[in-house]
């Protein structure tokens, strides 16, 4: 769920803009220019993937995917998520232009955490990759929900109930996201392991394209 315009105090919006802008600037500085088109393409793939609705009981939800972005892009995940959110705001008004900073922090920081955790947990075993994929997929969504609740709570005491509701509403999505991420990680491990940015100690040493 994205935060809309006008919900948070302007001071929080502007501060989040500055923080997210700094994050994007750091990502851009550490990237080689030739990697940018690759990240752009992966970002649009995530964008399309997040439009697919997954059935959940009588209703359906769309996936947030911060975990998967972290797994695939590593440190570039923050940039990718920021670009994806800008496009979602430009095209569909998911989140608003003044709340872009808040939304980028809300999704981008969990993606960075997921990226680090996933790399740390790998040892080149497929079952382990799938388990850590599930953990990271669930954790990414759960962290995003926590950030959402935290940001809503900065808007004042009135928003505490809405923040709690936002936390609870994300619980089923956490489970869905964990299962889908595990399946996807297992699939990629078999089909194209170099996409997973496995660390050097795995048996795919040297083959991995972790420059992204």
């Amino acid at each position: 769920m994205h935060i809309s315009d006008g919900v948070l105090p302007i001071s929080v919006s502007v501060a989040a803009y500055v923080a997210a802008g700094a994050g994007v600037a750091v990502s851009l500085r550490f990237l080689r220019p030739e990697d940018l088109p690759k990240i752009a393409v992966v970002t649009s793939a995530f964008f399309v993937a997040s439009l697919i609705s997954v059935p959940m009981g009588p209703t359906s939800v769309h996936l947030l995917l911060p975990g998967i972005v972290g797994i695939l892009l590593g440190p570039a995940a923050f940039l990718s998520i920021a670009v994806g959110l800008i496009l979602q705001c430009f095209l569909f008004q998911f989140g608003g232009i003044t709340a872009l900073g808040v939304n980028a922090l809300m999704m981008g920081v969990p993606a960075l955490v997921c990226a680090g955790l996933f790399r740390w947990l790998q040892n080149g075993d497929r079952r382990r990759a799938m388990c850590s994929g599930a953990l990271v997929g669930g954790l990414g969504t759960a962290l995003a929900a926590c950030f959402l609740a935290l940001f809503l709570a900065t808007a004042g005491e009135n928003f505490f109930a809405a923040a709690k509701l936002a936390l609870v509403a994300h619980a089923p999505v956490v489970i869905l996201e964990a299962v889908v991420t595990a399946a996807m990680t297992g699939f990629l491990f078999r089909v194209k392991p170099e996409l997973l940015c496995l660390p050097p100690r795995s048996k795919w040493r040297g083959k991995g394209d972790c420059s992204l």
Partner: peptide, 14 residues
Amino acid sequence: SLFAIGNFLGMLFV
């Protein structure tokens, strides 16, 4: 279904 969707997303990324 969820596993099939996971594989579908994986294929999209590949």
